[in-house]
Design a protein around this nucleic acid. Sequence first.
DNA 1: ATTCTCACA
DNA 2: TGTGAGTA
Length: 148
Amino acid sequence: MELDIESSKPIFTIEIASSLSGTSPRMLREYEKAGFIKPARINGKRRYSNNDLQFIKNIRFYLDEVGMTITALKVFYLATPCWEIKQCGQTKCPAFHNCGAKCWEAIKNNDNCNVRTCKGCPIYLVRQMHKNLKIFQGKSIGPKCFKE
DNA sequence: ATTCTCACA
DNA sequence: TGTGAGTA
């Protein structure tokens, strides 16, 4: 998992991002509304980074291949324990207590958190890891998963 | 010219 | 989800 600042630079307009990800601008805004991505704003206009583009691919994987709904995916992402991933040890962080909050919203203006923005945030990047979970490999979910 | 939000089907 | 209205 890399925390590449370059990959976090907001450079693509929504049209370019749409083209590169094969996702309509309409849906890109929808994913943002759901809290999956948070592209930067320049003069009120969205600017997507390479990381954003990667997350969009990840979102499409769950939606298209796994067959999850946006609602289900929302629960899935929100359930991600950011304090473990970051290993920040900040149990007094709002993100630790507020189950329903997107962590990057909860940590806003929180001096205790070592990650202030989504740029280079591990929470953003870790989502890709879930692609490797057994239940998302197209295999059946059941007792067979626990053999071997 | 492009993007934004909101609304409708 | 795509499309159109009305802005900025």
